[in-house]
Amino acid sequence: MSCQHLAEAGEPEPQSAYEDGCPQCVAAGFTGWVHLRTCLNCGVVACCDSSPRRHMSAHHAESGHPVMRSYEPGEKWRWCFEDELLG
């Protein structure tokens, strides 16, 4: 199965440095994120679904931006929320 969202996804600069952690968690005083993800539509950085607050999934639900990628050092895989496909 092919995914047009993955094919069309850009590569914007992340809006915050990896070392700064999940901006939403930090702003709320939490430090328990697991991994960080970057929205490939707008560059927002947020925590993954393994993290207690799942900020990247919340970003997708609020914005409709379909594709994110891992922001972990050395990882470049992408995920389409709409088609539930790894790319």
Rank of each mutant, 00 (worst) to 15 (best):
M1A: 14
M1N: 11
M1V: 11
C3K: 03
Q4M: 12
H5Q: 13
A7Q: 15
A9R: 00
E11L: 09
P12M: 14
E13T: 12
E13K: 15
P14N: 12
S16P: 09
Y18I: 01
D20N: 10
G21E: 04
G21K: 01
G21Q: 06
C22K: 02
C22H: 01
C22M: 02
C25H: 01
V26K: 13
V26W: 08
V26S: 12
A28T: 05
G29A: 06
F30H: 14
T31L: 11
T31S: 13
W33E: 01
L36G: 00
L36W: 00
R37W: 09
L40R: 05
L40D: 03
V44D: 15
V44H: 15
A46R: 07
D49R: 11
S50Y: 10
P52A: 10
H55P: 03
A58Y: 02
A58S: 15
H59T: 04
H59Y: 06
H60A: 04
A61L: 13
A61Y: 07
S63I: 01
S63A: 13
G64F: 08
P66G: 13
V67M: 10
M68K: 14
M68A: 08
M68V: 14
R69V: 01
S70G: 11
S70R: 05
G74T: 03
E75I: 07
K76R: 10
R78A: 05
W79K: 07
W79S: 09
C80N: 08
E82F: 02
D83Q: 14
E84A: 10
E84W: 03
L85C: 12
L86S: 10
G87K: 03
